[in-house]
């Protein structure tokens, strides 16, 4: 199981790659659209890449709630701890 720090790094790396950004520009409070210049297709692609990287599924409903980088990290951390304790 990955710790919070590892999840954070991996998420930042995936977002940086999709949006062609320097990872240091990406903060936990950065909003995908307003701060990072993503469009709706970028957000969907990022969600898909996160699903693949972490071996998880993110529903459409949950996708709508993920607006910042931190939201994504938190969602994944919770998902992992749920599936670990299950």
């Amino acid at each position: 199981m990955q710790d919070h720090r590892e999840i954070e790094q991996k998420v930042v790396q995936i977002i940086a790659e999709q949006l062609d950004k320097d990872p240091t520009q990406i903060r936990m409070e950065s909003r995908f659209i307003e701060d990072l210049g993503a469009d709706s297709l970028d957000v969907m692609q990022i969600v898909m890449n996160l699903e693949e990287a972490f071996g998880i599924q993110i529903s459409e409903e949950d996708t709508e709630k993920i607006r910042t980088v931190g939201d994504a990290v938190q969602f994944i951390a919770q998902y992992m701890s749920r599936s670990a304790s299950a």
Partner: peptide, 10 residues
């Protein structure tokens, strides 16, 4: 199907 890129069609 869940791995098809969102920007594929455009």
């Amino acid at each position: 199907p869940r791995r098809i890129w969102p920007a594929f069609i455009p």
